[in-house]
Structures are given as structure tokens and as C-alpha cells.
Design a protein around this nucleic acid. Structure first.
Lengths: 135, 135
DNA sequence: TTTCCATACGTACGCACGTACGCTTATACT
DNA sequence: AGTATAAGCGTACGTGCGTACGTATGGAAA
């Protein structure tokens, strides 16, 4: 019972824009449309109704639930970020790197500015992983 | 003269499927439709004509050029992988991690299996970067 | 030279996506 | 109580995407 789950319950993937919205929803917890709308990066401006539509679709796709209290609908994420992120990143890795994640890590470290603190953190992470792996 | 370049010459981004095809094109160099078609991951099967369409669109968008020799058209990538990858990854990082690449690196290392050799390579990379940064 | 095969090229088609309007209605103010 | 404001909900609409078919035709085989 797992293949079946995959077949029957597979949620359609979130689109790029829906991912943006989902991210906000994870960050600020259960939230109304307005909450999400306001917690949105100022540069990327969207119409209120558009945000509303995205949230509706996110729920339709099974990644959130909502309740109407009086006049206001509140959305709660029902899928864990980890899972959604795994899928989205997995897709990218598959298409762009043939499924290998190492090249992506390499790209990120080399091409995108990661500051000293970041580098240190990654180094520590690596050490931990190496310890665990050789156990 | 740079903003203007961006405005006038900005290529429309490649779609996910087009990225897959572009990747093959980079890997095997100038190639005919059939070449690309055959160098395609066996699991992911596509119709020959579909690959053909993608290549046409990739060229239309400005990421490749082609020449017809006799009966056969040969495509050559005209955009560097680094650039295209930067854009695609950048988009994902923006939408899913608010522009921070560190969380993505963290995710990759923790959640996706990277073998010992990979870890070692990353560690070395980090050391290099740290040396360079503190120079 | 006729025939066959593969390829190019135009075209198609449904669905998802990005984005938003407009109408209706419940709450909040006056 | 009446009116304004804000939210929900249905609906819309152009564009791109994923996928492929069909037809014409050039080159290879017979």
C-alpha cells in the first residue's frame, strides 16, 4: 500500500506562483488572504484577488485546507514544506542535472554568493553527514 | 547599455521540458533531432516529433541555432549552460526560499542522498571558497 | 527510375497558468 | 437603520506548454 497511494492520492504539483504563496503560508502559519497578501515581498506585487485565486487553487490541489469564519476565510497548509520542496527540487534536479544533486550543490556554492557564515554552516553539516555515513 | 539589452534581447525562459532537451544538447554538442532523441533517458519517453518541436522552440527562443544539411537539421546550443542554469535555479530559489540559496544547499545535503565522495568534494570546495573569501 | 523511409515543417489541441474583474453579501461605521 | 468597505466566489481570458499528427519532400535503396 504505497503505489496505490501514489496513484490515487497524488496531488497535482503546485505551479511556480502557487509555490510562492505556499511558502508564505508556511512562514506565517494559518492565515487569511490578506495576511498572505501583505506578507508578500514588496517587489513582487500581485493583486489581492490573484492571491485569493492561488490560495483557492492550492487548497483544490490538496495542499491546504480552509475554514470560513464569518466573512473571512483562513487557510492552513496541510502539506509539509519538506515534502513539497523535495518534489519541486527533485523535478529541477532531474531535468537540469539528470537526477544528480551534486552538480546543483556545486553550482550554488560556486556561482551564488554564500557568505562566510553560510560556508561555515555547510562545512559543519558536511562533517556531521560524514560521521553519520561512516557509522 | 545593459538595461536596454535586458529589455530588448531578453530571451523568454525555457520551459521545464525545453530545459531537459537543452541539457542533452549541451551534453552531446551539436546534434540532430535524432541524436537528441536517442540520448534521452530511457524512462522518460517522448515522441520524435515532440523532441523536434522542443528543439524548434528552443531555437525560436534564442537558445540555439541550427543549419539544414541536405535533409537533416542540426542544432547547436548558443546559450551557455551556466547562464541558463543560473536563471532556472535563481527562479526556484526566489520562489521557494525567498532568494536565499543556503536553505537549498542545506536541503540538498540533508534530504537527498549524496555519497561519501560527493561530500568530500563539497568539503574541499568549501575550503577553497573560504580561502578565497578571506583573502 | 521508381519506391520507400525518414525528416522537416506547419498545424493542432486541450489544459494549466498567471492574472484579474465583477457581482454579491456580510460586517463595521455613522 | 443605512451606507460604505472589504471579502468571497464565480468566471474569464490570453498565452504558453506538453504533446503529437499529417503531409510533403529529399535522399537512399532496389
Amino acid at each position: 500500500m504505497h503505489l496505490l497511494e501514489t496513484i490515487i492520492l497524488a496531488k497535482p504539483p503546485l505551479s511556480k506562483s502557487e509555490l510562492e504563496i505556499a511558502r508564505v503560508l508556511w512562514e506565517i502559519g494559518p492565515a487569511t488572504v490578506r495576511d498572505v497578501f501583505e506578507h508578500f515581498p514588496a517587489n513582487r506585487e500581485l493583486n489581492f484577488a490573484t492571491v485569493q485565486t492561488y490560495l483557492r487553487r492550492i487548497e483544490l490541489k490538496g495542499y491546504a485546507s480552509s475554514t470560513l469564519k464569518g466573512r473571512v476565510r483562513t487557510y492552513t497548509a496541510s502539506a509539509k514544506p519538506r515534502t513539497v520542496i523535495r518534489d519541486a527540487v527533485g523535478d529541477l534536479v532531474d531535468r537540469l542535472f539528470g537526477g544528480e544533486s551534486l552538480p546543483l550543490v556545486r553550482h550554488l556554492i560556486e556561482q551564488r554568493g554564500i557568505d562566510e557564515k553560510g560556508l561555515a554552516e555547510i562545512r559543519k553539516l558536511i562533517e556531521q553527514m560524514e560521521k553519520r555515513e561512516s557509522k
